[in-house]
Design a protein around this nucleic acid. Structure first.
Lengths: 195, 195
DNA sequence: ACCTGAACACCGTTCAAGT
DNA sequence: ACCTGAACACCGTTCAAGT
């Protein structure tokens, strides 16, 4: 169960191992189960051994968040309808976020990670916006709005319904999904409308 | 500095005192300084004394979040332009959120609090949507989208800029503010457009 | 009902020492 | 450079006891 090594013996860990184990722990037992100590136990290592591969828990989570963004299906802008391309990319992002419910608030707090995968997605969106005739300041505004809307909606969808309405029936997952699509269409209509 | 009472002596705390002290602590020292122990010290009480007034730290934070929503300027729908009314209400919400940066991720995680103030704001929005000719399922969808957008954008605005763009200059507060307004107009245009 | 004292079962992180 | 052992400085919360 516990450590089988004496000081000086190596476990052969890599940074990638730590990130992968963190993702497994997250998937299996949720966000609050992700502690450095639990992570160390899963890797059969003393808690502080992790600090040879990771600067802090915060930076570890940053890496995990960006790592997950690799799952977003993003084809580079092609010759099709750029509006459809944008819709598809944001839809895929939404689904990846929903698949990792626990992490959504963390994406929000860090606004969607700053790693290489996040940067790549941002570039693709800007490319598609350019194809749709939106560039410069407007394009950067639109990018921000789209990111905010998508993560925000995912945050919304991964929690029990707000009791704002009258007799409010809790919305089902498909209902929220079409709600997301509807709002996204509103946004894309506004963004690509002639000024 | 510390306790001046022996067991059995009362400090005269009320639930409202605890919430108020939590808000002060938050304003003065930020989210991570809000611990039950720090709160107890501020109230000159033993840490566990708080549990006579509050079920848990989580429920205390719920109360604080709803309490803050009382600051949103929300006049009931009048005879003016309902679009302008909606814009004003969401703008005021945005400003209240920005004024409490640390809490924005928490609003997201709980999707905007479920207390009486949140419910009141929800009702006002639904009323204004009805005045704009939006009702039923569409109105509830629109309410969700507006909440998501506003809290999401606030989350976005209270963090350093994402490094998604090319040579990205970090956006200033006023820039983000007008970005928020622009996206909000896009949404309200889409929401109130004839189907 | 409201409080204290003491404790429980945790955290993330650092430091010194081994190889 | 990578690991262990031990510790530091915290957490939220519970339990028993006082009035």
């Amino acid at each position: 169960m516990h450590q089988r090594r004496s000081p000086g013996q190596r476990a052969g860990l890599t940074r990638a191992d730590v990130i992968a184990a963190a993702r497994e722990l997250l998937d299996e037992r949720g966000l609050e189960a992700l502690t450095m100590r639990a992570l160390a136990e899963r890797l059969d290592v003393a808690p502080n051994a992790l600090y040879a591969h990771v600067a802090s828990k915060t930076s570890l989570i940053d890496d995990v968040l960006d790592d997950i963004l690799a799952e977003v299906e993003a084809s580079a802008p092609d010759d099709g309808d750029p509006r459809a391309g944008l819709h598809a990319l944001m839809s895929s992002s939404y689904e990846v976020l929903i698949a990792h419910r626990d992490l959504v608030p963390l994406y929000l707090a860090r606004q969607g990670a700053r790693g290489p995968h996040a940067q790549r997605l941002g570039q693709i969106v800007l490319g598609q916006l350019a194809d749709a005739g939106v560039s410069g300041t407007s394009a950067h505004e639109a990018l921000r709005v789209l990111i905010v809307y998508t993560i925000g909606f995912a945050a919304f969808a991964t929690r029990p319904p707000i009791a704002a309405a009258d007799n409010a029936v809790p919305p089902a997952a498909e209902e929220l999904r079409s709600n997301f699509d509807e709002g996204l269409r509103w946004l894309l209509t506004g963004i690509t409308a002639p000024a």
